[in-house]
Nucleic acid binder design. Sequence first.
DNA 1: TTGAGATCAAGAATTATTCTAAATAAAAAT
DNA 2: ATTTTTATTTAGAATAATTCTTGATCTCAA
Lengths: 153, 153
Amino acid sequence: MSQSSPTVSEGNLTHSGFGDFRMTKQRKVVYDVLMDERDHPTASEVFLRAKGKMPGISLATVYNCLETMTHAGLIKQVNVDREASRYCPNLRPHAHFYCSECRQIFDIDLRLKADAVAAWALPEGSRIDHIDVAMKGVCPNCGAEGPKTSSHS
Amino acid sequence: MSQSSPTVSEGNLTHSGFGDFRMTKQRKVVYDVLMDERDHPTASEVFLRAKGKMPGISLATVYNCLETMTHAGLIKQVNVDREASRYCPNLRPHAHFYCSECRQIFDIDLRLKADAVAAWALPEGSRIDHIDVAMKGVCPNCGAEGPKTSSHS
DNA sequence: TTGAGATCAAGAATTATTCTAAATAAAAAT
DNA sequence: ATTTTTATTTAGAATAATTCTTGATCTCAA
Ligand SMILES: [Mn+2]
Ligand SMILES: [Mn+2]
Ligand SMILES: [Zn+2]
Ligand SMILES: [Zn+2]
């Protein structure tokens, strides 16, 4: 119920992934919600915030927008265990740190380029398309006191 | 509908995580299913295989066993995106490699100890309890030909 | 042997997500 | 400027994995 749609195939701020991605009113709203607070909200949370900007928007549309934008490469879907998917507009390669105290998700940047991959004994001759790194623990604000060492998967 | 339950609090092959963990008939069956083929099956797959060994076992019980054993630290729950959880009896620290061709999951061992963590710019003073590393790509068997470099999260 | 607590089992309930179908809006063609 | 085509939105139904509920069954310890 309402469209704007400056078709964006290339050159604009909003780049696409394939064919024609239209930055519609609702997609803009959803994208802005993610940009406003970069706290990795769930679809439902995005929905609530989006309604603030566009009362008529539907949950289905929010799901549609999130999926479309994810496929277009505009945003990223972030999964923590079996919980509801969260969404992130940070396109730089990064890992996620999940604080089990405040339940916040932090973006963690890579320090040493892709050399981290070398640490993993991958089967010889395999192609790696994507790596997902998720860490869980307690953030500095929530006062950590335990080990700073990891316990891998 | 049937139990065996040699209560195991400590010292046995089957170690526990807390209080009293009973290695019941059904839990043994579920555990054996995971040990027989270390291919990270889903709960439903475990259920089917378990029925071969114990026809009367229920799906609910398989879910119960998997959860209990996960909490007890006997097995690990492995999540790939939004797909059904998979289960793994490999207790050594390891990452997972998911081949998008044959859809198999491989255990990937850590080569250089926990130094891999150093590659991530974690917030100063945060405690890391757990790290999850999941990679996606094409395994050697499925003939990879693309890049062997990564594209992070 | 008996009572308390743990476990199992069947099915109902929940929840996040996807699907369906009809209405609407934009883009392309005329 | 119409018409036609195609994409998008929307509400609600449907799905799928998992969890919950409840009562039966089992085990342990007294
Ligand atoms: Mn992020
Ligand atoms: Mn594994
Ligand atoms: Zn915190
Ligand atoms: Zn493969």
